[in-house]
Nucleic acid binder design. Structure first.
Ligand code: NAD
Ligand code: NAD
Lengths: 211, 211
DNA sequence: GTAACGCTGTTACTGTTTTCACAACACTCA
DNA sequence: TGAGTGTTGTGAAAACAGTAACAGCGTTAC
């Protein structure tokens, strides 16, 4: 994976876009890079660089047109259309994520969930149909889903990831706390909550119990 | 924040430590860098470099002693003691996180949760006492908590972050999808799920709905 | 005994991401 | 008009992260 666009830039663009939406509703027509930067808590130069990456150009006198920029970012990210996502593991985390996206982020739609628990399969949970994992090779291509979220126990994560990739998945957001070995053309993002918290706790100073 | 140790290294050390625990239970006494690297899906050079950062030294003939290394990393990360964490926002995500840490990661203990919902305050949820937010200035110093997790609606995140910092919090793991403005001595990690998914979806190819 | 091997620790290097700095331009105001 | 201000776009530099390379040294083979 040698992305023409840095992954960090994509993440920030997503944030800019969300911030711009709020200004759009307020009726603001244009913003300067330092205003966007201030809201996003980054430097103005960073904002200009990121916008340069998607080829959007502002004017030195007026700054950036809010609605045109919002549309440009949307177009670039492909978030002008609803994106279908697959979820594997409809447990506590999976349900929370599904509820969240369904109610708050209509741009992403949990189009199918997969689970091994027979009490969950065949039902609609949090607005999302839960299938047995044997349905992966049928549903994923049929729905044309290319992106999946893994929220299942660590010991089955690798196997399910393999099955997803075989079914055509090209990007995985992994919440299971285990490194995954995947083909190079599949984009993988690990969100290891324990490691994140460990990092924050580490930099919080010396927070031992019983101190 | 100019960390002597790169944040990425800390995160990987957390992972190494978890992997080592599994080998420890199996009775393995020593491992080479390339074995650790293979499990963690990184290069052997990366492993050696990370271990160099914490000053741990292996032997060229035997590799790294599993138990001594596990202990060294634990000591370095401070995870030899239980760490107390505060949670703000005992909603779907907060409950999932609390359940997860309580049952799976005893090293981190959700020592106190705060919420505005009167149906939640004063009760124990997922094994964690939920207080009203007005209790923050009392509980945080009393318990000596330095690390907090934010899992509440975006519009109150900044205000709650400020209150936490005033109460002595030195590190925040933020799940609310807004950038936070904090003093430089407070470590902040944003986990914006939407931006993560946007990134993965972007690099998954062209996954529009209706394609 | 000693040559060959394989691993660590460390330094040098490569590539990527972020910041800096400034030319170029539009607009304001005297 | 023309100096002054403030912004963008972008080349250059810096900071950062990861990789490669290799000296040093036990260990093994013979
Ligand atoms: N809950 C959290 O806040 C949290 C945070 C970070 C990481 N995680 C990780 O996310 C994963 C899920 O966490 P959780 O709290 O939702 O756990 P959970 O036990 O509530 O849910 C796991 C779900 O996965 C299903 N499952 C089990 N094996 C499966 C398989 N082979 N294929 C498909 N589905 C399968 C189970 O039936 C269950 O519904 C775990 O790996 C956990 O470490 C959870
Ligand atoms: N659910 C998810 O999977 C998910 C994923 C990513 C991000 N998030 C973000 O995490 C946050 C919480 O998500 P959720 O799904 O748990 O929402 P939720 O509505 O289930 O829970 C929010 C909780 O915060 C409490 N709260 C509201 N205002 C508060 C305040 N000022 N102080 C303290 N507590 C307050 C509410 O009473 C509620 O218990 C949101 O910002 C959401 O954007 C959630």
């Amino acid at each position: 994976m040698k992305p023409a666009i840095p992954a960090n830039t994509v993440e920030r663009l997503s944030l800019y876009r969300r911030l711009l939406e709020a200004w759009l509703e307020k009726g603001t027509t244009s913003l300067y890079s330092h205003q966007i930067a201030s809201m996003a808590c980054v430097t103005p130069a960073q904002v200009r660089r990121d916008l340069m990456a998607i080829g959007y150009t502002g004017s030195p006198s007026k700054g950036y047109s809010v609605d045109a920029l919002e549309e440009s970012i949307g177009l670039f990210l492909g978030s002008d259309r609803v994106r279908k996502i697959a979820l594997v593991g409809m447990g506590n985390l999976g349900r929370a994520l599904t509820t969240y996206f369904t109610s708050r982020v209509p741009r992403f739609r949990m189009a199918a969930a997969f689970d091994t628990d027979p009490r969950k399969t065949g039902r609609v949970i949090a607005g999302c149909m839960v299938y047995g994992i044997e349905e992966i090779p049928r549903i994923i291509p049929a729905e044309g889903i290319r992106t999946a979220v893994l929220a299942l126990p660590a010991d089955s994560a690798q196997e399910m990831a393999d099955r997803l990739v075989n079914a055509g998945i090209k990007g995985i957001l992994n919440y299971a706390p285990v490194p995954l070995r995947l083909p190079a053309d599949v984009f993988l993002e690990n969100r290891d909550v324990t490691a994140s918290l460990e990092k924050v706790a580490f930099f919080s100073g010396q927070p031992r119990e019983g101190s």
